[in-house]
Design a protein around this nucleic acid. Sequence first.
DNA 1: GCATGTCAAGTTGTG
DNA 2: CACAACTTGACATGC
Length: 299
Amino acid sequence: MRFGLCCLFKEEKVTFRTTTAKNLSLLSLDLQLQKLSGICLHNVSNLFLALETVQRFGIGAFRIMSPLFPRMTHPEVGYTLADLPDGADIQQLLDNIRKFAQQNSIRLSFHPDQFVVLSSPHVTVVENSIRELEYQAMLAEAVGAEVINVHAGGVYGDKHLALSRFGAVFQGLSETLRSRLTVENDDISYTVRDLLPLCRELAVPLVYDVHHHRCNPDGLTVAEATEQAAETWRTVGREQYCHISSPRNGWSSGDPKPHADYIDPVDFPDCWLGREMTVDVEAKAKELAVVRLMQDLGQ
DNA sequence: GCATGTCAAGTTGTG
DNA sequence: CACAACTTGACATGC
């Protein structure tokens, strides 16, 4: 069993910078690229630091924040690494990150945000989503990340139709991206049961989020969902990925969807114990929550 | 220094 | 019908 940290740290001095398109657009092209170069260099340096830090804690996986290179795919202020004054240094650091992760068996993943929707009926939404995903695939290749995990997106009144659009778009993606793309059950629309046929058809692994499953149940037990999701990883010969979180306000009062600071060990499925799998811990207390969960479970 | 408002993007459900 | 919630700050601005 391997535990994963998502994107950020609570106490450790590892930070990531960003900027906005609006702010960039006020600068001359030269200054824009200078500013972006500084941010990107800072971010890859800190990504290396992040991997050293998780390694020190015995954490075996790390989710990389999507805007590692902020606004790279933006229609107005987008850029490539070759455009940046520190481009060569940035490339070198990406290389070092890949080697460090490989040597220490740290599993890396990406989780594009809610604007990436492959099932949308709107052409431009799908185009923008593909552009963002291909950017993350390029990045994933550079650092040796193995998973780019998305949600199935909107329903638009017909789940089957939406999923068939997802499937059609998937076929047209680059091999770099297709070999990394995974799909996750969400907490309002698509359940494990909804996604399994798509995953089997496309040979896309299913990331099982047990918290979402509890918020948005589908008749499968946790053990059944775990096993059926595991099968989608087994067929492609890869280690299963799952997500865990606890409800901030408990299960009985109010909305269970918001994430708590820590994981209540009671929420950790018994059937996961001892399995060969990666569990990403989605908790506000970040590295503190991962460490505490590992201790609570006696890892 | 510190408080505040803003930031590319989609979709859904709530008030 | 407008707006917050998802992931969640970080940063620019203004006092």
